[in-house]
Amino acid sequence: MSSKILTFTLNGETIRVVVEPTDMLADVLRDKLNLIGVKKGCGQGECGACTVIMNGDAVTSCIIPALKAEGAVVETIEGIGGPGKYHPLQESFMDLGAIQCGFCTPGMIMSAKALLDKNEQPTREEIREAISGNICRCTGYVKIEKAVSTAAEKIREGK
């Protein structure tokens, strides 16, 4: 096996990390870079828990070869906000009851962020499309959908 050095931008920082050609991006983020907010619920791109934003698009990092991220700009939940400067999506997820077990939450927020980064006035259908690959078994998606539209409002008002 030929290890390689992967260089990419992760949450605004340039990262260099040794990876194998068989490594998937999710595993590198979780196991080598300790970003446990990238969850693994299926390993087959079917649950969305590992969703990150790569070059502006939401992708399931468990089926992206790590080396494909060479030179890419990658954002994970860890990079979008925290205490004192929460992202509006994090705020609205917390305030509106959109979080239950929390396992889908980081991926769900990243999918929603990819949407709102491009579209600050999404329709209900656009919100549902954006999170259609993020399985949540707890909430019935009702409060998640509401949290995304509320965050969009907040973002619009903030401008």
């Binding site: 791109g45 969703t51 698009d57 939401a58 399931t60 992206i64 690959g133």
Partner: peptide, 9 residues
């Protein structure tokens, strides 16, 4: 096809 994440990839 699939989900948005799949369609993005």
């Amino acid at each position: 096809v699939g989900s948005l994440q799949i369609r993005n990839t």
